[in-house]
């Protein structure tokens, strides 16, 4: 179908989890994107940084009654997805530190992320 073509895909997440479905459905695209052997850059800006908060406590049968999908972020490395970038200003503005996150991430300033953005072939924003 598209053999041999590798493009740089950025998945840019700017929405908090649970309030809307964007975070969960974005993650579903990311996993498929990795299966297509495209370069995957996962970026979290604005409220998107809340997606990575550890200790999310909900299940279909308790709490808000919604599946906790945050564990999927831990599975990303099994798909060779290791480029997770968090915008530093978004993180600090929300009182978060790297220690809050469910997986290791690379914290970048806006200039670095802006540069990364320019290098992409495709940006899927959620």
């Amino acid at each position: 179908m598209s053999e041999g073509v590798t493009k740089k895909f950025m998945y840019l997440n700017r929405k908090a989890p649970y309030g809307t479905i964007y975070a969960l459905e974005s993650l579903e695209v990311v996993l498929i994107g990795a299966a297509f052997e495209q370069e995957v850059n996962l970026v979290f800006i604005d409220d998107g940084v809340y997606q990575l908060k550890g200790n999310q406590n909900t299940s279909v049968n308790s709490g808000i009654g919604v599946k906790d999908f945050s564990k999927t972020y831990r599975a990303l490395e099994d798909y060779d997805i290791d480029k997770l970038y968090v915008d530093k200003d978004s993180m600090t503005a929300r009182g978060l530190t790297e220690g809050d996150f469910i997986v290791p991430v690379q914290v970048m300033d806006s200039a670095q992320l802006a540069e990364l953005m320019q290098q992409q072939d495709v940006i899927l924003s959620f």
Binding site: M1, S2, V5, K7, F9, E28, V29, I32, G33, A35, F36, Q38, D121, V122, I123, L124, S125, F126
Partner: peptide, 19 residues
């Protein structure tokens, strides 16, 4: 499937998102 979205990104020269 979602693979069609990835393929759309691979095949096209531009991807434009509306949301």
């Amino acid at each position: 499937g979602l693979g069609q979205l990835i393929e759309a990104g691979i095949q096209a020269e531009r991807m434009v998102v509306f949301g």
